[in-house]
Structures are given as C-alpha cells and as structure tokens.
Nucleic acid binder design. Structure first.
Lengths: 104, 104
DNA sequence: GTGATCCGCAACGAATGGGTTGCATGATGG
DNA sequence: CCATCATGCAACCCATTCGTTGCGGATCAC
C-alpha cells in the first residue's frame, strides 16, 4: 500500500510527536527551540522528531533568519483522515444494512 | 499526550499493516491464514502485525474453532479520525479568517 | 569584529521493530 | 486414537529508531 500514507501514520505514531502537533495546532508557526521548551529531552531530539514529521508530510519547515519555523501541513493530514473515514464507512454501511434488515 | 492514540497511529504506520486493514475493509472478518495469503512473508510475521493492530485498537480478535478471526474495530479508528479532523479544523479556521480579511 | 544565539550534522549506545525458524498446543476429521 | 490443520510462543538476527554529546556554521546585537 501507499508508502506515503504509512509514513504519515508512522510520523503520528509517537507521543512526543503528537504533543508537537498539538502545540502547532495552537499557533501559526513555531521555531525548534520554542517547540523543544518543556519537553523532557534535548533540542536535537526534538529536531529529529520534527524531521520525521516533515518526512511524513505532517509539517513543513521554513528558515526565518537564524531560526527554523515549523507549521502544520494540512494536505497530507487530510489524506490520512480520508483513509480513516473510508475504513469507518465500510462499517457504517454494514450497520446501515443491518438496520434496514431489522426494520423490514 | 494520549498513549492510546499514539499506539493507534503507530499501528497504522506500516505498509503491511495498512494492506491488512484494507483487506479487512472488504470482509466482515478474516482468519490469520487467509490474511497472510499472498503477502511476501511468513504467517507468523503477519500474526505479529495483527497483534500490533489489535494493541492499537484497530482490530479485534475472536477465536472461532481452530482459527482466529480478525475484524476492524471502528471505535478507536474514529478517535484517530477525530484527532486529524481537529488538526485540519484549525487550518480551515485560519483560512476562513484570511478569506474574510481579503474580501473585506 | 566579537560574542551570544539558534540550529544542523555526525558519531555513538541502548532499545525497539520486523523478520526468520523450530516447536508446542488445541480443535477437526476420519 | 491419530494425523492434520491453524495458531501461538520463544529464541534469535539484523536494521532501524530514539536518545545522547560534541562540534561547526549562520545570523543577530552591539
């Protein structure tokens, strides 16, 4: 299956990276240093996590002076969401059929 | 952040497991052996992947005679979908504000 | 310029992940 | 019963991941 989709899900499959995404949800764009603040690991570790998120298409980076700003990238996130919705739809459809059968 | 959510995303973050989910999308429930059929790895490897999916709440297992049936578990999938939707919503809101500003 | 700040790169060790094989177990069919 | 089939369990190997530290390169403030 789609390697890109797998990379996106894998990027989200870590508590630290989920926390980073949630932080980015509350701001337009944040620098590495401010994202690392408060997390129980080094700045370089956070930087690596951000690289994984970027590889998965969840965030994008842009240099701004001497700092690097990260922001959410909704396109790939929407693809992942669509996949999950499709998974659920099959089940909803089955439920619909069952309901129709019961009500007949 | 939610360890459960991270486990769910991590479970989906592998091409083989995504393929398994897609197969399960087309059937009510499938046994380990039939899920392993056609995949370029041993049955035990597939069994491990299914265990990871179950740990992430994506599928559930039930013994049926001498075979174990796996089926999709929509509840946790819906939680993951809701998270992704929330991530996108922030962006949509920002886009809305931008649009409103431009049109003023 | 000089010094401080923000960050990436490289090397390293410990832990995890994904695959294999061999064997044990429990249900099925004659 | 006995052979067979569908799985799980355990041990092992190799590759990757996750964290660290040390260093060097830009950039800003003065």
């Amino acid at each position: 299956m789609s390697l890109e989709l797998a990379a996106t899900f894998a990027a989200l499959g870590d508590p630290t990276r989920l926390a980073l995404v949630e932080r980015l949800r509350g701001a337009e764009a944040l620098a590495v240093g401010s994202l690392a603040e408060g997390l129980p690991m080094s700045r370089q570790a956070v930087s690596k996590h951000l690289a994984v998120l970027a590889e998965g298409g969840v965030v994008s980076a842009s240099r701004e002076g001497r700092q690097v700003l990260y922001r959410l990238e909704p396109a790939r996130v929407a693809e992942a969401e669509a996949f999950l919705q499709a998974v659920g739809e099959r089940w909803d459809a089955a439920l619909g059929r069952l309901k129709a059968h019961v009500e007949r």
